[in-house]
């Protein structure tokens, strides 16, 4: 590796997450950010997903959305540059936090997975303006599931000044790394009530028709009641909550789910987090150290 390349690599900007939730949702006729999948809003799902991969995550909003309840609980970046559309959200983040690269995610990608973000971040090229997935359907770059580098800020500003507004066209005309998602459905998005119904059904059948292997470890009272310290289980449980119900039916734990916490892959987790094959799950009874 040349010293120049090494310098570029070592200078790679830290990546924060930016969830775009400023859209008008005119085709959906309701607020897309608040749509529920498996009991959780799209915005919460996207926010939690990004939070598992980058140190800080913000929600991009228009000035008039700051107090809207789905959004107001989150760290916000309010549009600070003129114009309309997602390009404004991306530019505002790059402007407000110089020197930071942004993992930009639309909040209407219900199929987006941890694996898809891992792949995107692993294949990120900080020497170009952005690293983006290309659509499995039309081969076009997907600017709203992409890592935008700090160097994109002046180019985006110039592009907008020249009358441009489409971040997809921007990516086609500027140096960007385009990569193919291993899961071709990862970027399927949802813009109409019909697509929403289809996506809910697909998520449901996806998680309930594809059994997978999970590893479960047991500690303390849970270990005694399960009669084992660990097991590998073939299950179609979609979430830790589902998995607990399944195991509780088998072992009749005396503690209820409300009394437990749960960890996935050695980190505290929400009960509603989607599980994927190979996840290691631990149910955590009330602690008593000291």
């Amino acid at each position: 590796m040349s010293s120049t390349a090494a310098a570029v690599y070592s200078a790679a900007a830290p990546v924060y997450g930016l969830i775009l939730a400023g859209g008008a949702s005119s085709r959906m006729r309701r607020d897309k950010a608040a749509l529920l999948y498996q009991g959780k809003s799209q915005l919460d799902r996207a926010f939690e997903l990004a939070s598992r991969h980058v140190a800080k995550v913000f929600v991009s909003v228009r000035g008039d959305q700051k107090t809207e309840p789905t959004r107001a609980q989150k760290p916000l970046i309010v549009d600070s540059v003129d114009g309309e559309g997602p390009i404004v959200g991306i530019r505002s983040a790059l402007t407000d936090y110089p020197g930071v690269a942004w993992l930009v995610l639309a909040c209407d990608l219900p199929f987006l997975s941890d694996a898809a973000l891992e792949q995107l971040l692993a294949e990120r090229d900080p020497s170009v303006l952005a690293t983006a997935y290309v659509s499995a359907y039309d081969g076009l770059p997907e600017p709203l599931c992409a890592v935008w580098e700090p160097a994109a800020a002046p180019a985006l500003s110039a592009y907008q000044s020249a009358g441009g507004h489409c971040p997809r066209k921007f990516l086609r005309r500027h140096p960007a790394r385009l990569i193919e998602p291993r899961d071709r459905h990862a970027l399927d998005n949802v813009n109409t009530p019909e697509e929403y119904a289809t996506a809910q059904g697909a998520l449901h059948s996806y998680v309930h028709t594809s059994p997978m292997q999970l590893k479960i470890q047991y500690f303390a009272l849970m270990r005694e009641q399960a009669g084992r310290s660990e097991e590998t289980l073939e299950t179609s449980a979609a979430t830790p909550a589902d998995l607990f119900s399944e195991l509780n039916a088998r072992y009749a734990f005396t503690l209820s789910r409300e009394q437990l916490k749960v960890a996935v892959n050695s980190e505290f987790s929400e009960w509603s987090r989607p599980l994927i094959a190979g996840d290691a799950v631990v149910f955590i009874p009330p602690v008593a150290g000291g």
């Binding site: 500690f219 303390a220 009874p285 009330p286």
Partner: peptide
């Protein structure tokens, strides 16, 4: 906050996980 558990053994012969039973 830290996932540590404590089982007490009693003179009566019983035992129990603190905060769980």
């Amino acid at each position: 906050r830290v996932p540590i558990w404590k089982k007490e053994h009693y003179r009566s012969g019983d035992s129990g996980w603190v905060n769980c039973e």
